[in-house]
């Protein structure tokens, strides 16, 4: 008797979400099987890679910027526009503008300065959709993100993270100015669902919402991220819970590159082996794990890691 693969039939389907507009718009989601299990359903849209552009130029060997990553951007590191273009050359599907510099505990850049950065990036990349990511400071993000939405109305960009403490301002502006929201909750299925409900109650259609269940790096708790993403996916697909049927975004580069494994030099830790490869592997394997967990948007940093991941995605979802 021929072998038949046992198949699970899922009742639910994840929403298809469109970021940006026109020819260059990026579609994610729309799948009705668990990740990689394409024999049980379809993933019409492959996971995509958003590459980071920072509002404030990082310095060599500052946290998260060992040579492997810094060197790839050193010519463009002071120019967000050129940096974004470089990302497109490296194969980015979209650009993620990281506004880490707006954090009051960092350079405390103003909303106006953030708007300038976004403007430069937009001018450089044209219609490529943008993801605008705040500094994870609740207060500051709810000031900066709405200001950018107002400055660039109806671009249909993705803004995040919106958390329970600041989702109201961010969501209300997204409704008013025509953008999408990435809701971030802390590693908990019910909190993720609750945030989706709250965002929807405010009036934003769930067709405009992406979920960030909190991303951890390989070796630093990725199993928790994996587990919560798996459970959300099962709720969305197996239980057909329509408040959970939204694709994931994972802000992973920051996590992978700040690890000891990425940052320590060979001199500091001879047993770890060559530093550049090590960092790239940290980011790549974190990304692979998140693809297996069902990620739809991977926010990444290093061009080599991006190349590896793009090839992998193409093979897995061809």
């Amino acid at each position: 008797m021929a072998f038949a693969i046992p198949k699970e039939n899922y009742a639910g389907k994840v929403r298809e979400i469109v970021i940006g507009k026109g020819d260059k718009a990026v579609k994610i989601g729309g799948y009705d099987s668990m990740p990689l299990c394409t024999f049980e359903g379809t993933w019409p849209n492959k996971p995509v890679v958003a590459m980071e552009v920072y509002d404030v130029a990082p310095e060599l060997n500052a946290q998260g910027w060992p040579p492997a990553t810094f060197e790839a951007f050193k010519d463009v590191i002071n120019d967000p526009g050129a940096w974004a273009k470089k990302c497109l050359e490296y194969g980015a599907d979209l650009i993620c503008v990281q506004l880490a510099g707006t954090d009051p505990n960092a350079q405390n850049k103003s909303a106006e300065e953030a708007i300038e950065v976004v403007k430069k990036v937009k001018e450089a990349v044209g219609d490529i959709p943008l993801i605008i990511w705040g500094s994870n400071n609740l207060e500051k993000d709810q000031e900066v993100l709405p200001a950018i939405m107002e400055a660039f109305p109806n671009e249909n960009w993705l803004f995040g993270p919106a958390e329970e403490g600041n989702y109201k301002k961010i969501t209300a502006s997204a409704i008013g100015y025509g953008h999408l929201v990435a809701g971030k909750s802390s590693i908990d299925v019910n909190l993720a669902k609750q945030l989706n409900i709250l965002i929807e109650n405010l009036g934003l259609s769930l067709d405009k919402v992406v979920m960030d269940p909190t991303t951890a790096s390989l070796g630093y708790g990725i199993e928790y991220t994996y587990s919560v993403m798996e459970r959300i996916s099962l709720a969305a697909l197996a239980q057909n819970d329509d408040k959970m049927q939204n694709p994931f975004i994972n802000d992973l580069a920051k996590e992978a590159w700040k690890t000891r494994e990425a940052m320590l030099t060979v001199e500091e830790e001879p047993t770890y082996g060559e530093q550049n490869t090590r960092g790239i592997l940290m980011e790549s394997i974190t990304a692979i794990d998140l693809i297996a967990a069902g990620s739809s948007i991977l926010i990444m940093r290093n061009p080599t890691a991006v190349k590896v991941i793009k090839e992998l995605i193409n093979e897995l979802y061809s």
């Binding site: 709405p146 109201k168 301002k169 209300a172 502006s173 409704i175 008013g176 100015y177 009036g203």
Partner: peptide
Amino acid sequence: MRKRGVEFVDGS
């Protein structure tokens, strides 16, 4: 209307 409307939606 947009700018003020946001305040009505977010509750401020």
